[in-house]
């Protein structure tokens, strides 16, 4: 599915790199543990997380993850958006829980990795 479709499914809002909304994603991984995220080898991956800090963006940069979904209306600060922009990352905010987001996206065909 595209990032735009994904965003619609979770009542989300794209807050960074909106221009990439037609890019495709295939896999998703939900975690708040950054070293766990760094074990992931898949391309076109969406990270779903309840954590909103700079290290999430740094981790995604190293793991080459191009799209991050923040659950439960986490306050994503300007510093976070700036760093994501430098790295061409799409950031999506959703009011739903990580569990709800994962369920919707799994149902819609995003694949899990482990």
């Amino acid at each position: 599915m595209t990032i735009g479709e994904l965003t619609g499914l979770i009542d989300g809002k794209i807050i960074c790199c909106e221009e990439k909304r037609s890019e495709l994603v295939e896999h998703a991984f939900a975690s708040d543990l950054m070293s766990d995220v760094l074990t992931v080898e898949k391309e076109n991956l969406v990270l779903i997380t309840g954590l909103a800090n700079l290290q999430v963006i740094r981790t995604a940069e190293m793991a080459e993850i191009g799209c991050i979904v923040f659950g439960r209306d986490k306050k994503v600060g300007a510093d976070i958006i700036d760093l994501a922009k430098q790295n061409n990352m799409v950031l999506v905010e959703s009011p739903h829980s990580v569990f709800h987001i994962s369920g919707e996206l799994y149902k819609a065909g995003l694949k899990s990795i482990y």
Binding site: L33, M34, S35, T39, Q55
Partner: peptide
């Protein structure tokens, strides 16, 4: 709270 402490860092370095 910053998202670390899984105890996977050293093993990730090795891998």
């Amino acid at each position: 709270e910053m998202g670390f402490g899984a105890g996977l860092g050293l093993s990730n370095m090795k891998k």
